[in-house]
């Protein structure tokens, strides 16, 4: 996993080094439009082009760019999710997937035979089918307000996708979007440490020996990633 992602991080580090003088000022660099050399567009490995269009649009509604910081697209959350689809997690390798699969009350937890890859494939098809039926166009081509309506419908389990409750797909997507925006950039998201910067999370600094009892003081250092990228 992640060769492309690592190469990208390496180029970001060079970029950041060039900006070192202003990097500590606390503004969100990830929302800054300037890039010395834009990276080549990411080509998804798991998602088809129609699925990819859905994913980009949906991610940006779940975490929109606004005055609080960058949106999911700028943070490369779709790339993170596509890269995750190549990990054992996406194949359900960490889940108990033995039959029989018996549905029960919600509070007894997930009981479907589907791994994350299946949930995305079926869930995105379901979302686009609802978009086409209601509005005659795929999800990605709808106005943001209509996209939000469909996402809320899925969230509240008001849409039907065959045997996958739409809320199960929505929860899977939302969980991965959060992970992509706020995990270490080594996994392909949180580009420019923009997720951490908007939150005020110092990342891998992980040493507060001298700061623990500076009560109420603002921590002055920007975030740092596992690879050494700083913001």
């Amino acid at each position: 996993m992640g060769i492309g992602g690592l190469r990208f991080i390496s180029s970001r580090r060079q970029f950041m080094r060039g900006l070192a003088g202003i990097a500590a000022c606390g503004t969100s660099l990830a929302s800054h439009p300037a890039r010395s050399r834009p990276p080549a567009p990411y080509v998804p490995r798991f998602f088809t082009s129609a699925e990819w269009a859905f994913l980009i649009a949906a991610c940006d509604r779940l975490i929109p760019a606004d005055e609080n910081g960058p949106g999911a697209r700028a943070l490369d959350v779709p790339r993170f999710i596509d890269m995750q689809m190549d990990t054992p997690y996406a194949f359900g390798a960490q889940w108990y997937m033995h039959a029989p699969f018996v549905q029960g009350p919600d509070n007894l937890g997930y009981q479907l035979p589907y791994a994350p890859r299946d949930l995305y494939r079926r869930g995105i098809a379901g979302m686009n089918a609802h978009a086409a039926t209601r509005h005659g166009r795929p999800f990605a081509d709808l106005a943001p307000a209509l996209q939000d309506d469909l996402l809320r419908g899925a969230e509240n389990n008001r849409l039907v996708f065959g045997d996958i409750p739409s809320s199960v797909f929505f929860d899977q997507l939302l969980a991965n979007v959060m992970e992509g925006a706020f995990s270490d950039p080594v996994h392909g998201g949180n580009t420019g440490l923009g997720g951490w910067t908007m939150l005020g999370f110092p990342g891998a600094r992980a040493d507060f020996m001298d700061w623990v009892d500076r009560y109420g003081a603002h921590y002055p250092l920007g975030s740092v990633s596992i690879s050494g990228e700083t913001a």
Binding site: Q94, W95, Y96, M97, V102, G104, P105, L108, G109, Q111
Partner: peptide, 24 residues
Amino acid sequence: DLSKNTVTIRNNSQQTALPYRRMA
């Protein structure tokens, strides 16, 4: 590694216990 071994859970003995398939 839950894929190899987990538990089943129910709230009372009238229910069918279902596998704890994902960590939570």
